[in-house]
């Protein structure tokens, strides 16, 4: 499974990189979104894969079972998911606004600070 996930992550990175290199601004934003997904999945697999072992302390138990999934990467990713949402929202608003101001979606036309 880890091998398959490695390939999946590789494909996600490759796709996001390809999209980031495009000139259409929406594609670039899609690339940003995909990149954060790839990173989150990377951190997740780094924490180790466990099936049916949620990182909760069982009723009656005092400590987290040794077989449980690692809670730390999960906490990190939870934060990352919400932060990427904020970043993406900001990017989208910026692109939306740039489109209103300039009427173009070509990144190359958005180089300057002044509307063309």
């Amino acid at each position: 499974m880890e091998f398959l996930l490695a390939i999946t992550i590789g494909v996600l990175y490759a796709a996001s990189f390809y999209l980031l290199l495009r000139r259409g601004v929406v594609r670039v934003v899609l690339g940003v979104a995909l990149l954060s997904q790839a990173v989150n999945l990377l951190i997740f697999t780094a924490g180790g894969l466990r099936e049916g072992a949620v990182p909760f302390i069982a009723e009656g138990g005092k400590v987290l079972g040794a077989a449980s999934a690692d809670p730390l990467p999960q906490a990190l990713i939870l934060t990352a998911i919400v932060i990427s949402f904020g970043v993406l929202a900001f990017t989208l608003a910026m692109v939306h606004r740039a489109d209103q101001a300039t009427g173009t979606d070509d990144v190359d036309d958005l180089k300057g600070t002044d509307a063309t």
Binding site: I7, G10, A14, A15, L21, L42
Partner: peptide, 29 residues
């Protein structure tokens, strides 16, 4: 979508992306 890039550029980018993806997959392993 506006179509801005030439086909040759797209192919170049696809190859570079594939290389990057492969490296990242290996990093995971």
């Amino acid at each position: 979508f506006g179509n801005y890039s030439k086909k040759s550029v797209k192919i170049r980018d696809a190859i570079l992306a594939a290389v990057f993806g492969t490296v990242m997959a290996m990093v995971v392993l």
